[in-house]
Write a protein that binds this DNA or RNA. Structure first.
Length: 799
DNA sequence: TCTATAGAAATTTTT
DNA sequence: TTTCTATAGA
């Protein structure tokens, strides 16, 4: 039961409402805080930490707080620092699940046979490893796409199903193949001393299960555990939380079931819903008063989310003054939608009727898909509006950066074949694909690590002199770098991470290559590599600063090895939201997923259309649809004062333009709080039935001609039904590029349904139905798109 | 052995 | 529109 706050605590807990106070002053035992949007949840958590440290006398290093992003972790630490001393705040452990696990596995990994220099594989590393596995197993990636294999494996890992456990329960052909692939993939990662994202969690659970002494140490260390955004934890994270709390039971979780938006990633909403069952003696606090949004915005969110079945009722309310109604904006197309938002933000920025303007940094634009940011970006740039895009990985996804990082990884982890193979001939140094095959074959045959073979390529059969020399030279370069990292100061007296990264970029030949790259006249890629050097330097400075603070001034020198591992870990675990800078005076563009936990005075949501929100790939099952609704709920509730929900009548997606259907969620908003704006200019379009599902599919061109087009909504809705049944053999179809053809057969292999079609002009083609955008030709000669028969979702009612 | 080119396929959300 | 893959040519 919560302690009544002693009078002297008033300064710390003053200003908290009754329920906030109850949560913030709670000391021992399990605590569930069900926090509606904008209900002061972060305040409660930070004040509780401060209360524990300052008033209860808990040592800060005994406190563990888990947040959803690294940025949120940093902010939480900063906010606690304002309530306790800077030094105490430093001693707290505030991290994401993934970075906490990465750290624990460096510390305890030897118990699982894991070296401290292990690699963390991102999605593209995983894909490379997977392609290698499929190749080794002689499995056709057309039938078993790497991405689908990885998704299945990821799901298994999130449920803590090992490869052998998965194999045991695999019952059909497909699952048995996945099991084979999973087993091979695990073998590959182990051989490479590599973990994927899911492994970070999975291996930590394993560590706790198999090494009670380690778990005991961790329990001793983390006596007070807090987990934010608990509604988005998966089973593995649940197990970690419970393992840590199973002794002392001091587990505080905060979250909102209505904001669970990561179900597709394995998040299990029942973790939060069943918290009281897991802990019979749990204290439950509800934070339902909203301090963020106007009543209209809150009403919109609340009315919308009521449409989700099987959720706990929550009474959201606010004392905030009435503001403008929520604006539902109809635009002509994506470009005009973007300019409407830009114009509106401009006038908000200038301020109207004597009202002060809103700073650019107080405005945000959200979308369901990253690809929607492009038009918006161009428009903002042209309009001279400063903006930033939250895409943490974008920088590190660049080819030149990936290459440079692959060099660093190869240095840190000699076993990492995936990264080694990436750069063994990048830039070209005369080690061809056949040559690497010979090297690999030799390694396999003599059961040697690939890196050992590189160092002595003489006995490898099939290598010509040139390849042999190149390999030897390359191996020597690698050796030299590893020597530097291992601390051989005879090589470099005072090694900095910055200097090392620079050396690698130069000595690898990357610098020279991009210096002379004719396809990049502006030397942009070279500049990016420079940017990587800068970020290494930045990281180094931060790390030294942290170390100094921890050591209380006594500057302890960090080894290049530690700095390199830290840098690589940071690169691997950046989140999109991590790159958002506040107070930079920039309009923020981000996906709805990245927007979680943030708030802005003015918010515009673009692309609120069926097929985009809800997304076509997520509108099949009720669960998926409800998650899409929660996604919109999250978006709406980020807004404080001004909210614009925009959709366009026509949208260009992947270079194909077509009419759209406005989001069905518009029907679920409260009319009283909505103001509709028609900002579309219909002049150029022939638009017989803009909102119905009539498949006119025709667009009047500017020159007056009619052009037949497939709508985005139609094409994607067609996906929803069992397509195989819609295309029996013999069906005549039209393909955008191949023209007319006859369906020979349809088969579902692996994850996709493919149709073999004999085209009149293009011959036989096998196409994935899901993407082929086929048009079916009816026996009477009329053209019908596949979705016309799909009445299930064709009942759009004009808003 | 490497590179240029053309053609075809693939498009959610992310640690 | 972008990205990957296959293939031919240097």
């Amino acid at each position: 039961m919560p302690d009544a706050p002693p009078p002297q605590e008033n300064d710390l807990l003053a200003g908290l409402t009754e329920p906030q106070l109850q949560a913030a002053s709670h000391v021992d035992g399990p605590l569930l805080v069900l926090a509606g949007p904008g209900s002061g949840k972060t305040r409660v958590v930070t004040h509780r930490i401060a209360h524990l440290v300052r008033e209860v006398g808990i040592a800060p290093w005994n406190v563990l707080a888990i947040t959803f992003t690294n940025k949120a972790a940093g902010e939480m630490r900063d906010r606690v620092a304002q309530l306790v001393s800077e030094r105490q705040a430093r001693a707290l452990t505030v991290a994401t699940f993934h970075s906490l696990c990465a750290r624990l596995l460096r510390q305890y990994g030897d118990r699982l046979g894991l070296k401290p220099g292990y690699s963390i594989y991102d999605t593209s590393d995983q894909k490379r490893a997977m392609k290698q596995c499929l190749d080794d197993l002689d499995i056709n990636p057309k039938n078993f796409p790497p991405a689908a294999m990885l998704a299945a494996i990821s799901n298994a890992k999130n449920d803590l199903l090992s490869a052998s456990a998965f194999t045991q329960q695999a019952s059909n052909f497909y699952d048995r193949t996945v099991a084979k692939v999973y087993t091979k993939y695990e073998k590959t990662l182990t051989k490479n001393d590599a973990l994927d994202f899911d492994d970070l969690l999975f291996k930590t659970v394993r560590l706790m299960q198999q090494h009670p002494d380690a778990l005991e140490e961790l329990r001793e260390r983390f006596q007070y555990v807090m987990i934010d955004e608990y509604q988005d934890t998966n089973h593995a994270q649940f197990m970690i939380a419970h393992a840590l709390a199973s002794g002392h039971q001091n587990l505080m979780v905060t979250g909102d079931p209505d904001q669970s938006i990561y179900g597709w990633r394995g998040a299990d909403i029942t973790n939060i819903l069943d918290f009281e069952n897991h802990f019979g003696n749990a204290t439950v606090v509800r934070l339902e008063q909203n301090y963020r949004s106007t009543p209209s915005i809150l009403a919109a969110a609340d009315t919308l989310i009521q449409n989700n079945k099987g959720r706990r009722h929550k009474q959201l309310w606010t004392d905030n003054p009435e503001g403008d109604p929520v604006q539902v904006v109809t635009c002509g197309d994506g470009a005009s939608e973007a300019s409407w938002v830009a114009d509106t933000f401009k006038s908000l920025n200038q301020g109207q009727d004597g009202q002060p303007g809103i700073a650019w940094g107080q405005m945000a634009i959200f979308y369901r898909m990253n690809s929607l940011s492009r038009v918006m970006e161009d428009t903002l740039r042209d309009a001279g509006i400063p903006y930033q895009i939250a895409r943490g990985t974008a920088f590190y996804d660049r080819k030149e950066i990936k290459d440079a990082v692959a060099y660093l990884r190869t240095v840190a982890n000699p076993a990492d074949e995936v990264n080694l193979l990436r750069i063994i001939n990048t830039p070209a140094r005369g080690i061809s694909v056949p040559s690497t095959k010979h090297l690999r074959a030799h390694a396999l045959e003599h059961n040697l690590p690939f890196s050992t073979v590189l160092e002595d390529p003489t006995p490898v059969a099939g290598l010509n002199t040139r390849a042999h020399n190149s390999v030897a030279k390359f191996a020597a370069t690698l050796q030299n770098w590893r020597g530097q990292v291992a601390g051989d100061t005879s090589l470099i007296p005072d090694p900095t991470l910055r200097g090392f990264v620079e050396d690698v970029i130069t000595q690898s030949g990357l610098e020279a290559f991009y210096q002379n790259d004719t396809s990049d006249p502006d030397r942009e890629r070279l500049a990016n590599l420079g940017e990587l050097v800068t970020s290494a330097q930045q990281f180094e400075e931060d790390m030294l600063l942290d170390a100094e603070r921890e050591q209380d001034g006594a500057s302890q020198t960090l080894s290049l090895h530690d700095k390199l591992l830290g840098f690589l870990e940071r690169i691997a675990l950046v989140a999109d939201a991590d790159t958002v800078q506040s107070d930079q005076g920039l309009v923020t563009l981000m996906t709805l997923h990245a927007a979680k936990g943030l708030e802005f005075p003015a918010v515009a949501l673009i692309g609120v259309e069926d097929g985009l929100l809800p997304h076509s790939r997520s509108s099949e099952s009720t669960e998926d649809l409800e998650e899409e609704r929660r996604l919109l709920f999250v978006g709406i509730t980020r807004a404080e004062k001004h909210l614009y929900l925009c959709h366009a009548k026509y949208r260009t997606v992947f270079g194909q333009s077509g009419p759209t259907v406005k989001s069905r969620f518009f029907n679920e908003l409260p009319p009283d709080h909505i103001n509709t704006v028609d900002a579309s200019d219909d002049g150029t379009y022939f638009d017989p039935d803009p909102w119905g599902d009539t498949p006119s599919g025709s667009i009047r061109q500017p020159d007056g001609s009619l052009k037949r087009r497939r709508s985005l909504g139609q094409a994607q809705r067609g996906v929803a039904t069992g397509l195989a049944a819609d295309y029996p053999p013999g069906t005549i179809v039209r393909h955008a590029t191949f023209g007319l053809g006859r369906v020979v057969n349809v088969a579902t292999t692996g994850a996709s349904t493919r149709a073999k079609i004999c085209f009149n002009t293009a011959g036989n083609k096998t196409l994935v139905l899901q993407y082929a955008r086929l048009e079916r030709i009816n026996p009477d000669g009329t053209t019908t798109s596949s979705s016309d028969t799909n009445t299930e979702t064709g009942d759009d009612i004009p808003f």
